[in-house]
Design a protein around this nucleic acid. Structure first.
Lengths: 161, 161
DNA sequence: GCATAATAGCTGCCAAAGCAGTAATTGCCG
DNA sequence: CGGCAATTACTGCTTTGGCAGCTATTATGC
């Protein structure tokens, strides 16, 4: 069924997409995290603000599944952000189980201030890349994610269609 | 200096290598973790065994920096694996601060048993990819990691040369 | 329509990661 | 050579994530 890109007899972690993605993730964190901490945010706090800014998530549930973060832990982080007046919980009548998270003006301002710093770091990380290489990397990552998503939960995609 | 791949005024997380790598990492974990747990290993335990198998690491320090894992936490995980007889701590005279980790026969057997399962999952995740696409993805990830590594610690590479 | 299952968010408890400080060893520089 | 800084691994303490259970609300099957 699936292609034989890897074989057990010759497998080495160094050439595994799994290892390489994990390592890229580690290195990205090393680069980005100090940036947020300097501005009074933990990484997960930034992630939430950015997810709301870009429409990646509206409910806590979305953030949990998108970023593989624990639901209980997330509640407490949202509490922190709400206490600092950066976002608000809104209950809509449409489905009263759900909580809609909304950035306050202060929250929007905070995340917008961080964006240029992120952009700088990303551009630095991609200095040696051509435009075409970046496009190809994005395309392949998106394709990989789509496949993984599909294998994990075939129903979701069908349901959204 | 660095190319302008991204601009603050048009930046969206969905097209960020950072976001895409983080998401790939999440999805990979969702796919792989159940596999290890079914065989009595946590993900970090597998990572350690695989790192030793493939020569990614020899000392605890190597694992910490490669995988961004806390040194203290790692000591305790290594304790677990040592108690289960899967690896051994060896002090070499060359530098007695360092501990060299070595897989025992049981440890080697355990990790070798897991490899085929990993390989299957990876091949599944890459089903829709051509050989050329996989090669290109690997190349770009390796290049990205090298750049990030360089930006984080310019001395390391110079020292190793 | 009603009982049951499923979903979303929250709370308490436990395990694990993060942090700081320690001891042993080695490298470095005067 | 000697003293100080750096490195490696480890140990306690704190913070955070992961898990199970709970409540409220909505979807589903009879």
């Amino acid at each position: 069924m699936s292609k034989q890109h890897y074989q057990a007899s010759t497998y080495k972690s160094q050439m595994s997409v799994g290892y390489l993605v994990k390592r890229a993730h580690s290195l990205m964190l090393d680069v980005m995290e100090p940036l947020f901490e300097n501005h009074g945010f933990s990484f997960i706090q930034y992630v939430i603000l950015a997810a709301l800014r870009d429409g990646i998530a509206v409910n806590p549930k979305d953030i949990c599944s998108q970023y593989r973060h624990d639901s209980g832990a997330l509640t407490r982080v949202i509490d922190q952000l709400a206490e600092r007046g950066l976002l608000e919980r809104v209950r809509r009548d449409r489905d009263r189980r759900k909580v809609e998270l909304q950035l306050t003006p202060a929250g929007r301002e905070a995340i917008e201030r961080l964006i240029p710093l992120i952009v700088d770091k990303l551009n630095e990380a991609l200095t040696d890349f051509t435009k075409a290489e970046v496009q190809e990397l994005l395309r392949l990552l998106i394709k990989l994610n789509a496949t993984l998503q599909l294998r994990l939960d075939p129903n979701v995609v069908a349901a959204e269609a």
